[in-house]
Design a protein around this nucleic acid. Structure first.
Ligand code: MN
Ligand code: MN
Ligand code: ZN
Ligand code: ZN
Lengths: 165, 165
DNA sequence: ATTGAAAATGAAATTCATTTTCAATTAGAA
DNA sequence: TTCTAATTGAAAATGAATTTCATTTTCAAT
């Protein structure tokens, strides 16, 4: 899925990779699961991109590193990564669940073009404050929120046709 | 789906109902569709509740008024109602698409309990301003946004178990 | 190094909300 | 009333998400 980045970053350093792996292994140990080559490959593949990937997209990328990795393993590993905070689901409402890695990343939100699917990341600390404030007001223990803006990007406004979302 | 209302309202008056129907009929005529008894029943059923209904939930309610109404017709009618602004989809991320009616209602957002599914409505004009502001900044023609807060409600914090979402 | 129990894997099957198909029925303009 | 295009709803299809299960692998205890 197309993306335009606001805070472009280099790919993760070897040190970053090791640190993220450690978080993952700690989590696996904590819940009584085992360390495997596949889980390693999937985590590495996931960290290498800042894209918002569907399970199938990550599966295809991981398969380039290990041709016999299975879709099911990618699916299950994404759940594990979400459990330990290395991944989070991001719903663009395009019919598939997407994930992005959360290792050393600032919290951000997305604006999505309903025509071409382009997503733009933006920062808006006010939204986090609203979560806290409204949770308090209605006596919720607020743990997370979703905020997305939908519209038509500059390029698509110039084109004639329309599709998607 | 359970809901706690902030701005409780009486059921729609006969006059409200007529006004909403007129909006619907105008839309049908505009796109070359016909006025049917089923569509009428579905609209009335939909307006009578302020709940956030899945297609299946609305189908079950509508069937009480007309036992031989079909699921497919409810499904299609919801799309039509969304087209003319009388309904909007609200994604609680519980695995089904939900709709709420937008006739004579203030724009609002939702806080959802991830344990029991309770949803609380709240008003936050700041969020609408953010949409406008960020759209402008990144040259999007922003048309809508989604904002939800997830957490655990007061009642569920007291209970021991956990489930859902 | 060997063993064995528990976990992991991945292909295949299943689930389930959503969407499409299609033959019979109905609306409504002329 | 007639005719055409739209509607209906049961059934089938779709497709992402999830589960099943036979086989393989991990890893802690010998
Ligand atoms: Mn992002
Ligand atoms: Mn609402
Ligand atoms: Zn675009
Ligand atoms: Zn609750």
């Amino acid at each position: 899925m197309l993306q335009r980045r606001i805070d472009d970053h280099a790919p993760p350093s070897r040190e970053d990779m090791r640190e993220a792996q450690e978080i993952f292994y700690k989590h696996l140990k904590r819940v009584g699961l085992k360390h495997t080559e596949q889980r390693d490959t999937i985590l590495r593949t996931f960290l290498e991109t800042r894209d918002h990937l569907s399970t199938d997209e990550l599966f295809r990328l991981a398969r380039k590193k290990d041709a016999k990795i299975g879709f099911t393993t990618v699916y299950r590993t994404l759940k594990l990564l979400a459990e330990c905070g290395l991944a989070s689901e991001v719903a663009f409402h395009d019919g598939v669940a997407r994930y992005e890695h959360q290792f050393n990343r600032r919290s951000h939100h997305h604006m999505v073009c309903t025509d071409c699917g382009l997503s733009v990341e933006f920062f808006s600390p006010e939204v986090g404050k609203l979560e806290e404030e409204i949770g308090r007001k209605y006596h919720f223990d607020a743990t997370r929120h979703t905020f997305q803006i939908y519209g038509v990007c500059e390029d698509c406004r110039k084109k004639p046709s329309r599709k998607l979302i």
